[in-house]
Design a protein around this nucleic acid. Structure first.
Lengths: 133, 133
DNA sequence: TTGCGTGCAAAGGTTTTGCATGGCA
DNA sequence: TGCCATGCAAAACCTTTGCACGCAA
């Protein structure tokens, strides 16, 4: 896999961005408009980087969001919580919770893939705010 | 909400189907091709029935899958496991696992929405089969 | 009878693809 | 130098929408 200029632009966009997650059209507005890379290259890079685990893909209603994954090392070892209110992703490093994966494996015969498994709900801050969250 | 012929056709398709989950294009092939209902009606019904909780929507890679929800009563009270190999959805009614929601609420301040939260992995049958699953 | 639901076809938006060119290793 | 990656534009794809008509309540 070549480290092209366009790849680096995209990777750095994620690394230095203010948010953790971006939709494809946000990236198009930010990078393609600047001429940093073409739209088709963007989509091809997003697919490849997601396949290779460098990015992670989320579904937020109808939108598809991407997040740079290399920043958190052991994402396959813990659960993830995603807030429907503010979109925040919480990495749940907690022994009691982590034990669940083993319980599900031994008692239910199901091998979890924690990288792909996201639990949805409302975080502390968003809980009181709005029932429509 | 009217119980139209088209609505009944769609509802019965889910109720009597061999699988639990169908993508929109599978339903189009099965029902729209027969003239049971038009494509736009299908999409409108899928949206409405999902909003009203009669169907549940899943994201499988890029595909969107729908499942008839009335068959399982208390889906907001237990976790769901979805096998990446065969697509099977497992309703995980297990006290030890259910306690996790309360732990996450009390210890982590996060209110889970179990209806939306799906854990992915491989079921017992698919585990040995193929590493590419 | 009322007005929600339907069907068609067209519009809409996003993602993918073909092909010639460019640039990394 | 060889081959993967890129960019453009067109195509493909799925979903939504406008509007007149039909049908459930």
């Amino acid at each position: 896999m070549y480290k092209t200029m366009q790849y680096k632009a995209l990777r750095d966009f994620f690394r230095t961005g203010q948010k953790e997650q971006y939709s494809s059209d946000e990236i198009i507005d930010a990078l393609c408009a600047d001429g940093a890379l073409g739209k088709s290259t963007l989509y091809r890079q997003l697919s490849r980087m997601t396949e290779q685990g460098e990015l992670r893909r989320f579904h937020e209603g109808k939108r598809v969001l991407y997040q740079y994954a290399h920043q958190h090392g052991n994402c396959h070892e813990h659960f993830h919580l995603k807030c429907r209110g503010c979109g925040k992703l919480i990495h749940l490093t907690c022994d009691q919770v982590s034990g669940l994966a083993e319980h599900i494996a031994s008692a239910h015969g199901f091998t979890l893939d924690l990288r792909e498994s996201v639990l949805y709900g409302l975080c502390e801050g968003c809980r009181g705010k709005d029932a429509t969250c």
